[in-house]
């Protein structure tokens, strides 16, 4: 497959390892080299280290899992000191995922990232359902989405990807707000707010009470949202949610995603992305369409 030029970046293939499922790019070396990916999104990073939520943090659900990690991370200074030197040796697209509780902290974080040459783009996390402030609070409001995106765009020297929350009534409206504010691309979906009750203890299973649902259970919702966002905006979409096969990935492309991201499945089969990439390339060949023609093809097929 030819490389993909989108949002001012060049991806060797359309597969991205999703934030929070790929560590700081140094966790999968025993399984495959990160250069086999189109790109990867680092674990969400904040100005200061974060301890995260108390356990229980994860629970399996039918065809999925719920997590409430609470953005535990090492903080920007340690990212620069301990993790960037390795990331500098890599060639695939490196995206930093930023989390902050306020606009000012988002700005400070963006300025820090500007200084890291090897980071190619930033993904702003305004959609985490598992933190008390910031996160999803921003991403469920078109006004807040626009305000934050605009301010971050002003200072960022790198393309800005806005990661959208599915926990909204009209995702197209949020997508438009991000596009209007200058976002270079959109990434969707983050996890879906969910919970499980343990009927033996009669308590919520997770210490945080609610968490974010991911895995194959959310795939049809994610495909629907990518489909809607594709109709609402013209900037590129990184689509994902429950992808575990080449055929799953193809659905997202046909719905309108230029790139696809694999998240939870990395936990189940950590060696799988390079295998899925090969299968995906074969699937694309079988369609007799070019990859770029396949992006959003379901819309065109539907209207003819």
């Amino acid at each position: 497959m030819k490389s993909i030029k989108t949002a001012g970046l060049i991806f060797a293939n359309p597969f991205i390892a999703a934030s929070g499922t790929f560590g700081y790019a140094d966790s999968y070396l025993d399984f495959y080299h990160p250069d086999l990916l189109g790109g990867f999104v680092l674990k969400g990073i904040s100005l200061e280290p974060r301890k995260g939520n108390p356990p229980m943090r994860i629970i399996e659900t039918p065809s999925g899992m719920i997590n409430a990690i609470g953005l535990e991370n090492i903080g920007i200074e340690r990212l620069i000191k301990d993790k960037i030197p390795f990331i500098e040796t890599l060639h695939s697209v490196a995206i930093a995922n930023l989390y902050a509780e306020t606009k000012d902290d988002f700005i400070k974080l963006t300025e820090k990232i500007n200084e890291i040459k090897r980071i190619d783009a930033i993904e702003i996390n305004i959609s985490c359902p598992n933190v008390k402030s910031g996160g999803m609070q921003f991403g469920v409001s078109p006004k807040m989405t626009e305000y934050l995106t605009k301010n971050i765009k002003k200072v960022s020297s790198k393309p800005v990807i806005v990661k959208l929350s599915p926990n909204v009534a009209d995702i197209g409206e949020i997508a438009k707000a991000a596009e209007g504010a200058g976002a270079d691309a959109l990434s969707l979906i983050n996890t879906i707010s969910a919970m499980i009750i343990d009927t033996k203890t009669m308590l919520p299973a997770l210490a945080n009470v609610t968490g974010g649902l991911s895995g194959p259970a959310i795939l049809p919702i994610a495909v629907r949202m990518v489909y809607q966002v594709y109709e609402a905006v013209s900037i590129p979409i990184i689509g994902g949610g429950g992808i575990s096969s080449a055929n799953d990935a193809l659905q997202f492309v046909m719905a309108g995603a230029s790139l696809v991201s694999i998240g939870t499945y990395n936990f189940i089969s950590p060696a799988s992305i390079p295998v899925i990439i090969k299968q995906f390339n074969n699937e694309v060949k079988k369609t007799d369409y070019s990859y770029s023609d396949l992006i959003g093809i379901a819309h065109r097929q539907h209207s003819t």
Binding site: G20, T21, F22, G23, S27, Y28, K51, G52, P54, P55, M56, R57, I58, I59, M65, N67, I69, E72, N266, F267, P270
Partner: peptide, 21 residues
């Protein structure tokens, strides 16, 4: 522990220790 990945990435299986989670 109840684990998500088993190889240190998902951060789902933390235990509280004197050195933090």
């Amino acid at each position: 522990a109840y684990m998500g990945c088993g190889f240190g990435v998902c951060l789902g299986c933390v235990v509280n220790t004197k050195n933090g989670y």
